[in-house]
């Protein structure tokens, strides 16, 4: 977590730009929130599959060509969310060399305590560094025990 879903109405996101888009989204998320890159997942879906996911997770309809939808941890301020949305729309538009208005984005808050990653409940926003240190120590101890 976060999990960002990307789609285009026409399925027109070029294959060779998907990694760059995933890296751009990861860079924006980590820069804005301070979260480690390993937390950031970016999945691309065709529009029909995205609609299935949005029907279950939420997310608004949009007439734009390119749609981003992010499941992010609760506790982010409106200012942070605005920076995430603005930064990611801009970054994706630049990679795709398209108008900013063609990229829309919605987010949904997910409680950190609802999510387990790496066998540990996710930290609250701002507590990532301590969480990662504990988690890495736990992984190192587990590796030594094997």
């Amino acid at each position: 977590m976060p999990l960002y879903l990307c789609s285009s109405k026409s399925g027109s996101i070029p294959e060779d730009k998907k990694q760059r888009i995933s890296q751009a989204i990861t860079e924006v998320h980590c820069h804005v929130t301070g979260a480690p890159p390993t937390f950031v997942h970016v999945f691309f879906f065709e529009a029909d599959q995205l609609s299935i996911l949005q029907s279950l997770w939420g997310g608004g309809d949009s007439d734009s060509e390119y749609q981003l939808f992010g499941n992010i941890r609760s506790g982010r301020t409106d200012a942070i969310k605005s920076m995430l949305v603005g930064g990611m729309r801009q970054a994706v538009a630049e990679v795709l060399e398209t108008e900013l208005s063609e990229v829309t984005m919605a987010t949904k808050d997910i409680e950190a305590k609802w999510v387990m990653e790496g066998g540990d409940l996710l930290p609250e926003p701002g507590e990532e560094e301590a969480w990662l240190e504990r988690h890495n120590q736990k992984m190192a101890a587990a590796n030594q025990a094997v």
């Binding site: 294959e15 998907k18 990694q19 995933s22 890296q23 990861t26 860079e27 890159p37 390993t38 950031v40 997942h41 970016v42 999945f43 691309f44 879906f45 599959q49 299935i52 996911l53």
Partner: peptide, 12 residues
Amino acid sequence: IIVPKGQGWTAG
């Protein structure tokens, strides 16, 4: 839901 190869990215 199967994420096809090249469609799923973690940490870029």
